[in-house]
Simulated scan of single mutants.
Amino acid sequence: MTTPTRHLRIHQYAGLQPGPRLLVTAAVHGNEVHGTHAMAGLMQKLDSGELVLERGTLTFVPIVNPLANQLNRREGDRNLNRNLRPPVIAHDYEDRIARVLCPLIAQHDGILDLHSFQGNGPAFAMVGPRNNTGELEPFTQEATESALAAALGVSRIVEGWLSTYALGLQRRQLRDHDGSRRTSLIIDPHYGVGTTEYMRSTGGWAITLECGQHLDPNGPEVARLAILRTLVFLGMVTADAVEPHRPAQPPEVLQLYEVIDREDMGDQFAREWASFDAIASGQTIGTRASGEAVLAPSEGRIVFPNVKSQPGTEWFYLARPSDRLLPHNGA
């Protein structure tokens, strides 16, 4: 039996001039390793002097969840990227990671969190809310996130995660529950908070980059270019470190507005969906174990369809066009 790693491997580079403090993370979900591979290559270049950090502090955490990574699955004991906060009492492996990860996040100005996804589909970035002073996710860094997301080289940007997740949580809290720790976690109002949401709660900015499907051979290159473009955007490396992103047209921006949970393992999709497949109003997306059809409430896109989701957790999300304005050219 494999002994779970009891430490986090953290690599830090300090430029000789003051500047931003950037945290880059990967394998928050253990089988999402495009960013892990990209960081390994960039660390070789930094160590050899081929890439020079001119200013600021760059921190790499190539494997945030070592247990899940060793098991080659999404989670160790639970989903690290939900309900992320320093625990008063550590109940599981992910709680012990959070004790180290949360203070590390708070020491930085921003985070680029590198992920991948189960279904097919192109790479995309996720950003936080608009500037606001509300209770759910107060925020002041909309301009930074919008400009950086536009510079990363993806053709699609998605917003609205936490507000959409909160709607799903409200429905979960109305159901009957078995009193288990798993159930108590998925109905906790904090359950939508992961790495990026925690960073925003400390006053920083955050980008999630979904680098493609888990086994997409181009995923590490998507991650590598994103890291370099972020460093250039922040002025931490020289502009010639990477070819800038010069899109023919601005990225498409979508707003998440609904999340639908799987209720039973007998719930089945009507077809093999990929993220951002178009859906028409009233179209059948799937069928419940009871035979009830799950219909699209309006025209839009399906996001994160997950045939492996467990009952009581997210089955898929719905998105529609956003009116968010982005810069017309990248960094």
Rank of each mutant, 00 (worst) to 15 (best):
Q173I: 03
L174I: 00
D176Q: 14
D176G: 13
D176T: 14
D178W: 11
G179T: 12
S180M: 07
S180V: 06
R182T: 06
R182I: 04
T183V: 09
S184A: 15
I187H: 08
I187P: 04
I187D: 05
D188F: 07
P189M: 04
H190T: 01
H190P: 00
Y191G: 00
Y191E: 13
Y191L: 00
V193L: 09
G194L: 00
G194W: 01
T195S: 15
E197F: 11
E197N: 10
E197Y: 13
E197M: 09
E197H: 13
M199R: 11
M199F: 13
R200T: 04
S201D: 09
T202Q: 15
G203F: 11
G204L: 05
A206I: 13
A206Y: 14
I207P: 02
I207G: 03
T208R: 06
L209K: 11
L209N: 08
L209C: 09
E210R: 06
H214W: 00
H214N: 04
H214S: 00
D216Y: 12
V222N: 03
V222E: 10
A223T: 01
L225E: 12
L225P: 00
L225W: 06
A226H: 02
G235H: 09
M236I: 04
V237D: 06
T238E: 15
T238K: 15
A239W: 11
D240T: 15
E243F: 01
E243D: 13
P244G: 07
H245L: 01
P247C: 04
P247I: 02
Q249Y: 06
Q249T: 14
P250Q: 07
P251R: 03
E252M: 08
E252A: 14
V253H: 06
L254M: 12
Q255E: 15
L256V: 11
L256I: 10
L256F: 12
L256T: 11
R262D: 06
E263C: 10
E263R: 14
G266K: 07
D267V: 07
Q268N: 08
E272D: 15
E272H: 11
A274W: 04
A274R: 14
D277P: 08
D277R: 07
A278R: 15
A280D: 14
A280M: 08
S281K: 13
G282N: 09
Q283C: 01
T284E: 14
T284W: 02
T284M: 07
I285R: 01
I285N: 03
G286A: 06
T287R: 14
R288E: 15
A289M: 05
A289E: 14
A289V: 10
S290E: 05
S290P: 01
E292N: 05
A293R: 14
A293K: 15
A293H: 06
V294K: 00
L295E: 09
L295Y: 06
